[in-house]
């Protein structure tokens, strides 16, 4: 299935990825993010959605749960300008909980 890539996030993220040549981007604020995300998911043209990690963590839990269960589109959270990223830790913790030991030691 052919799909497009969408960048959805704050100004630096959007500008950066537009410089990388991505054509589709939506700039969002904390308030409009959830709405835009729902719109983007509903559009089957977008296969990968690159978003801001902090914004993604602030959305309603119901939507978050839905995101966890769908395989399409793929949502990639990116660290923001402060450079902090919880995403790797989250996966590491999941692994630890499910397999019973820390793999990435």
């Amino acid at each position: 299935m052919k799909a497009k890539i969408l960048v959805l996030g704050d100004a630096p993220l959007v500008t950066g990825f537009r410089l990388a040549g991505l054509e589709y981007s939506v700039q969002a604020t904390d308030q409009t993010f959830q709405n835009e995300l729902e719109k983007a998911i509903a559009n089957p043209e977008y296969g990968i959605i690159i978003t801001n990690e902090k914004m993604l963590n602030s959305i309603e839990w119901r939507l978050k749960k839905k995101l966890d269960s769908i395989a399409y589109p793929v949502i990639v959270p990116m660290p923001d300008q402060s450079g902090e990223s919880m995403e790797g830790d989250e996966i590491r913790q999941l692994i630890k909980r499910a397999l019973g030991f820390d793999l990435s030691g």
Binding site: K4, L19, G47, A71
Partner: peptide
């Protein structure tokens, strides 16, 4: 200026996604 440059850089990047 940056957004002007990025307009020139636009590429048609399509990915293939199979589930």
């Amino acid at each position: 200026e940056l957004s002007k440059v990025s307009l020139d850089l636009r590429k048609d990047i399509d990915v293939d996604i199979e589930v």
